[in-house]
Simulated assay, not measured.
Amino acid sequence: MSQTVAPIPMINLAIAFIPVLLVFVVLIRWTMDWQKALIAVSRMLVQLLLVGYLLSTIFAAEQAGIVMLVMLVMVGAASWIALNTTTFNRKNLLAQTFLAILVGGGVTLALVTQGVIQLDPWFQPSYMIPLAGMIFANAMNCISLAVERLHNELQHGVTFDKARIAAFQAAFIPQINALLAVGLVSLPGMMTGQILSGVSPVIAAQYQIVVMCMIFGSAGLSTALFLTLSKAQFTKTATAL
């Protein structure tokens, strides 16, 4: 098996956008909001190309301070985006969200990188940053779902304790589904990438088990911490309704 992944020529990369264009045809014909989808696809393209070059520079530098700064920026962005779907004033919850993702995700990241993989050096960027991205992104999604459900429950007069349980359960539906489907319905990204790069499927499966546990644990811890830290803000809002 080949030990490297071949680069994709730009002309070949353009072929991947054919299904995207077909979706835009559907959006336009059905008079849906295609402009928002266009902005999202454009941002994806620009952001991924830029981050590719940026990460190449960071990996080459191998400086702990730069890696930590990048991860703090990631946590900040995840915290802001997590509150994007709620009508609640996100500024009132930003600190709680940041702390929840930082602690819940950070503890899990430290456990995996230092206890399981045992990075050397401990901040090895090629491992630390991608793993941090997976952790913070999933924590962000869980908190986003929890915020929306919690707010809706409180608006319907449900007590905070019951609303918190409903919010946590709703936030964890994608996580549970992912665990049930892995290996049967889908081969997750990291496992697929390792297999494509020539790694043994057994070793790839071991790493994917670590990733699934990492994602499940960090998302749960971050969401639980957020629901605990934000109780005062949501209770105050519920009282005002």
Rank of each mutant, 00 (worst) to 15 (best):
S2H: 12
V5H: 07
P9S: 11
M10N: 08
I11A: 14
L13I: 07
A14S: 15
A16D: 04
F17G: 11
F17I: 04
I18N: 01
I18D: 03
V23H: 09
V23P: 01
F24I: 07
F24K: 10
T31S: 14
W34A: 15
Q35G: 10
K36I: 08
A37P: 01
A40M: 02
V41M: 03
S42H: 03
Q47L: 15
L49K: 05
V51R: 04
L54R: 06
L55H: 07
S56E: 10
S56D: 07
T57I: 14
A60D: 11
Q63S: 14
Q63Y: 02
A64L: 11
I66V: 12
V67N: 02
M71I: 01
A77V: 12
A82F: 00
L83W: 01
L83S: 08
N84M: 05
F88D: 02
F88K: 02
N89W: 00
N92W: 06
L93E: 08
F98K: 06
F98P: 00
F98D: 01
L102A: 15
G106K: 09
V107D: 12
T108P: 04
L109R: 07
L111S: 14
V112D: 09
T113W: 01
T113Q: 06
Q114W: 05
Q114Y: 02
G115L: 15
V116Y: 11
P125E: 02
S126E: 15
Y127G: 11
Y127N: 10
Y127A: 14
M128D: 09
I129Q: 06
G133Q: 00
F136V: 13
N138Y: 03
A139P: 00
A139G: 08
C142S: 15
I143C: 09
E148Q: 08
R149C: 10
R149L: 03
H151D: 06
H151R: 05
N152L: 08
N152M: 04
N152A: 12
E153A: 14
E153C: 10
L154T: 01
D161T: 14
D161C: 11
K162H: 05
K162R: 04
A163K: 02
R164D: 03
A167V: 03
A167I: 04
F168P: 01
Q169L: 06
A171V: 00
I173W: 03
I173E: 04
L179V: 08
V182N: 05
G183A: 14
G183L: 07
L184V: 09
V185R: 00
L187V: 15
L187T: 15
P188N: 11
G189R: 08
G189P: 02
T192V: 09
Q194L: 09
S197E: 06
G198T: 12
S200M: 08
P201A: 15
A205T: 15
Y207S: 07
I209K: 03
I209S: 10
I209W: 02
M212F: 08
C213E: 03
A219I: 00
A232E: 07
F234H: 02
T237D: 11
A240W: 00
A240D: 04
